[in-house]
Design a protein around this nucleic acid. Sequence first.
DNA 1: GACCATCTCCCCCGTGCGGGGGAGCCGTTG
DNA 2: CAACGGCTCCCCCGCACGGGGGAGATGGTC
Lengths: 216, 216
Amino acid sequence: MPVTVLLVDDEPLVRAGLRAVLEAQPDIEVVGEAADGAAVIPLVRRLRPDVVAMDVRMPLMDGIEATRLVLRTVDSPPKILVVTTFENDEYVYEALRAGADGFLIKRARPSEIVNAVRLIAEGESLLFPAAVRALAAEYGSNKARADLDRAALTEREEAVLRLMARGLSNAEIAERLIVGTETVKSHVSAVLAKLGARDRTQAVIAAYESGFVSPG
Amino acid sequence: MPVTVLLVDDEPLVRAGLRAVLEAQPDIEVVGEAADGAAVIPLVRRLRPDVVAMDVRMPLMDGIEATRLVLRTVDSPPKILVVTTFENDEYVYEALRAGADGFLIKRARPSEIVNAVRLIAEGESLLFPAAVRALAAEYGSNKARADLDRAALTEREEAVLRLMARGLSNAEIAERLIVGTETVKSHVSAVLAKLGARDRTQAVIAAYESGFVSPG
DNA sequence: GACCATCTCCCCCGTGCGGGGGAGCCGTTG
DNA sequence: CAACGGCTCCCCCGCACGGGGGAGATGGTC
């Protein structure tokens, strides 16, 4: 009995690529595709795939929310393999916390991709780069925020960083969030400290590099 | 006689996707693949493809340089179809100036992709979004820098922007480029003006959003 | 109740940043 | 030749930014 896979990605090209790579294996079968997380629930119910290859970033519903939904609303849910473009995608960790079983970078070689699907299907939790395995382990255990509070921005700090990454000044951010500029300065300072950034420019760079915000 | 295509992209997944999409057409045949622009010349000589689907961003040699090389060193060269991830990729325009015959966004639907390959093979110059057609037309005629000098950064300005986008201060940039800080300030001011940015943060954002620099 | 994180706001203070000028040197183009 | 664009450097100036430190108000956790 082959491993059945459902592909969820907003880019048809990526779906075609995954399909081509996976269908080349005799023991793997792609049973369906979806272009957005919002479409995933009925498909999972109907197709009952062993593995869902899920993109993180999608227009309507992202991979995190979709993962959560699948695991909550479907009984004996499929394994979730999160697919991402960037190595250090903040969202990936969120997806793992949401219950995803592993993740895969799009740059991976075909052999690594099929391997990942097989391992996931067997119940292995796989996390591709070794460094990330450690990171995600820490994330899993709900201690260990001490030395990676770099990522542990508070809600407010995230909001401020998002606006910083859109080019707003402190005054403009204050206006937008309906708080005083001194408050914004506090949050900005906290963000800079946690990100190890010297100024807002470096913070915005970190935001882009980590995938916290992304171009386009 | 089918249209023969050579795929050049550093991501195997994208190559597999393109191959799957194109091979599904009876009149299109993928005759080869390359993972970097540096490998393209011998392959073109040997395979003599009608069309080269060329990624812009690749580790060793980018699509622009590769396009230039192919068109210069090969006689009766293939058509070059530039493939890109981002809509407003500065590099795309450079590639078009380098002699590429058209460009395609990776998000495009499969039908659009095969269409693009067919049209390019027939000698059509195709530029996907209408807005870009106009832009590239202006780029083609070597006037028209007046109203889009936004993009017309000088070498030095590009260098400064690149360093800005790595988080360097004016003093650090000056050190790196071995010039005075006042010089750097001049360049920074020019960059800000041309990009319509208010401060360096907005300039860096523009750099990311335009694909001038990219995460990872 | 004590503790802690978060959010809010305040003070002072130094400086890096960016605007607005100008100027000399060089190479290309008309 | 003169003109122009690009690179280099200089001046003055105002201000937003970021560091350091403090503080009151929530709300949740132990």
